[in-house]
Write a protein that binds this DNA or RNA. Structure first.
Lengths: 217, 217
DNA sequence: TCTTGATTACTCGTTTACGAGTATACGCAT
DNA sequence: ATGCGTATACTCGTAAACGAGTAATCAAGA
């Protein structure tokens, strides 16, 4: 198993990659990340940022290079990346790129407990999601196309990836919604009965007591 | 903006949904979740489980119904869901289903710093990922097909969703890898030069100083 | 000129998350 | 009968994540 990172937070990765360009103080890192659109995927949490930088320093991946006081403002400590930091960065990227990891999404969680709602309500909610998803996707596509006129592909791949995934989600939701509204979703009648009366159809009852989900080996 | 959940951890959602069936003590929840394959997407962290149950109790979403001591074993406290708990569960599912939220994946993070590696190495790592991804996907598909013979669709949609997304990822990685190995990836030469010499091509240099990522409105 | 609002630049205290550790019971093979 | 591995059922301490709060600076409008 891959050795655990001394600093595991993905914000640490962003910090490291920002410091590769030039030394900075934490607030500056935040602005740079924000400028580069990193805050879209990863809201900047102030508490975490400073904790992360501290931890990176503790492990020798970054080091304070100077400490400037400007006027009466609080002192700004400028950090630079160390050799160990560079090594950690590349090693980490290597691992992240090569090794897929099962991540858990909120929508997956929602789907797995969807049965607590009625089919009609679920369909209604999925329809809302679909609309929101489509709007967002269109906007992001437009923004990407716009950016692509100035910025090389290399710096846009992550957005391309997210759009590909978002597209798949749209497709999935559309399909599911279609089955629900057209009534072709298998087991819809049972689900309907259950949501109205709380009665679990007999052939289901036995299943509920045992493992009923796919197990991976 | 949606009011923040009193207990925001997704494990709380799982706990709540387990308790809808019948009251249980925490360890039992863990076994039930494990049986239902929830541990595949969401490793059960013992510390969190007990914290989450405590928090749920503090907010009146679950309540201790009995406390059994069996032999000399530590006391097991059995928890049941309350009316407030049921309300919270359905409300939460409604929100999760209807409102898409930008989540941040490790692979996205990796792609956004891919430039620190050489194109050749990136391609190599992506090839590894692709293989792993394909194997996993095939195994999951098989497991799903197997489960589908016994279990109704309703309890498998979340796995279907994950597979749809995984499929999109495979497609994306395959495409990107293709462009990289065939040399058709735009800007590949510049990237190559940069990775060998550290020299940023002049037309890029100016971009690096300013915002160069797509901004969403 | 005075005030208001935005920006800069953090600090601190409170949750939350987690994993390693603990301790008992049970089945079964020797 | 005794040892040993496995399942049960947590507890606790540490580490990480966060968000609200603070306080100074600066630009621009009233």
């Amino acid at each position: 198993m891959a050795k655990r990172r001394k600093v595991g937070n993905l914000m640490a990765l962003a910090v490291l990659s920002a410091l590769v360009q030039r030394p900075m103080h934490p607030y500056q890192m935040a602005s740079v990340l924000r400028e580069h659109g990193k805050d879209q995927n990863m809201k900047i949490k102030w508490g975490s940022l400073y904790t992360v930088v501290q931890n990176l320093e503790k492990h020798g991946l970054v080091e304070a290079t100077e400490s400037v006081r400007q006027g009466g403002r609080p002192e700004r400590t400028v950090y630079g990346i160390t050799e160990a930091g560079r090594a950690e960065l590349t090693d980490w990227v290597r691992e992240l790129l090569s090794t897929p990891e099962q991540e858990q999404s909120r929508f997956t969680a929602a789907l797995s407990v969807m049965a607590v709602l009625s089919p009609a309500e679920a369909a209604d909610l999925l329809a809302r999601r679909l609309t929101a998803l489509e709007d967002k996707l269109a906007a992001r596509r437009a923004a990407l196309a716009e950016a692509a006129r100035e910025v090389p592909r290399l710096f846009l791949v992550e957005e391309e990836y997210e759009l590909a995934v978002a597209d798949a989600e749209v497709g999935f939701v559309r399909g599911l919604l279609g089955e629900l509204t057209s009534g072709t979703f298998p087991g819809l009648a049972d689900w309907q009965v259950f949501s109205e009366t709380g009665v679990v159809p007999p052939e289901l009852a036995e299943l509920m007591e045992r493992g009923l989900h796919p197990q991976q080996p």
